[in-house]
Simulated assay, not measured.
Amino acid sequence: MPSFNLKINQPCGEDFNKFTPTEKGGFCQSCQKEVIDFTNMSESEIIEYIQASTKKTCGRFKSSQLKHYHIPVQSSRFGKFRSCLTFAVISFLSILNTEAKTNEISKKPKVELQEEKKISTNLETTTEKYTITGRVMESSGEGAIGVNVVLKGTIQGTATDFDGNFSLTLDKPKGILVFSGIGYQTQEIEYDSNQLTNLTVYIDADIKGLLTVGEVNTSLLYSSKKSIWQRIKDFF
């Protein structure tokens, strides 16, 4: 999948708030250029603008927006057919693998199978899981993307999706969740087994170093290395 890294090599020291307002941002009198304000753009809008731009762009970004972007690939009718064919091949291979495992299990002595079933049953009855779901919001009311959600004192965690939603399964009925990310202040929230779903967490922006203004650099445009399944798809 095509992708690129968005960064600013040399941040500008000018104050964006003092620029003359324009339709897309502000005009810098120092460098005589329009500085595009990307801070309120979605990820898809940023990708669309960068792809359509034919000249050097100066922009204002949140620190969280200076990252790696994947460019969506438009699928054709043939591409859809190829995807369906690939899915059929993968499904067929999965069926063969399942049958092989079933045959292997059927060859095991009955005593051994009974012991495995007993151990499995004991584990299921002694280990209870707690799934916590919710959404992390910015002060603007938008979902916070890429915020880390970690159980304090452990490495168990996840990250919010493009809408700020998260889902985390833990084996503790209560504890403290730590919310952190680039451009955000770290937030800690207690949870317990009585409140595990539809949590709403507001995370404040880290004003210090949050906004970056400067010339956009997307020179690291490249295509990521294909996986084995992508190679199978190309074969068809």
Score class of each variant (00 low, 15 high):
S3F: 06
S3T: 13
F4L: 00
N5S: 09
L6S: 10
I8C: 10
C12T: 10
D15R: 02
K18A: 15
T20N: 04
T20M: 06
C28Y: 05
C31W: 07
Q32I: 14
K33F: 11
I36L: 06
N40E: 11
M41S: 10
M41V: 11
E43M: 03
S44R: 07
E45G: 13
Y49E: 01
I50V: 15
K56F: 13
T57M: 05
C58L: 10
G59F: 06
R60L: 12
F61W: 02
K62P: 08
K62T: 13
S63A: 15
Q65W: 01
Q65H: 08
L66W: 05
K67F: 12
K67N: 07
H68Y: 12
R77L: 15
R82H: 02
S83W: 04
L85A: 14
L85H: 06
T86I: 10
V89R: 03
F92P: 01
L93P: 04
S94E: 04
S94V: 14
S94G: 10
S94I: 14
N97F: 14
N97T: 11
A100N: 13
K101S: 11
N103F: 13
S106V: 13
S106K: 12
K108L: 10
E112T: 15
L113Y: 03
Q114N: 09
E115N: 09
I119P: 05
T121S: 15
L123Y: 11
E124Y: 12
E128G: 09
T131P: 08
S139F: 09
S140Y: 05
G143E: 02
G146W: 04
V147W: 07
N148S: 15
N148C: 10
V149A: 00
V149W: 06
K152C: 06
G153N: 00
G157I: 03
G157P: 13
T160P: 06
G164C: 06
F166C: 06
F166V: 03
K174H: 11
I176S: 01
L177G: 00
F179S: 05
S180T: 13
G183R: 01
T186N: 05
Q187E: 12
E188F: 01
E190I: 07
D192R: 00
D192I: 01
S193E: 05
Q195L: 06
L196Y: 00
L196H: 00
T197A: 11
T200Y: 01
D204W: 00
I207H: 02
K208G: 15
L210V: 10
E215S: 02
S223G: 12
S224M: 11
K225T: 02
I228E: 09
I232H: 03
I232Y: 08
K233T: 14
D234L: 12
D234N: 08
F236M: 03
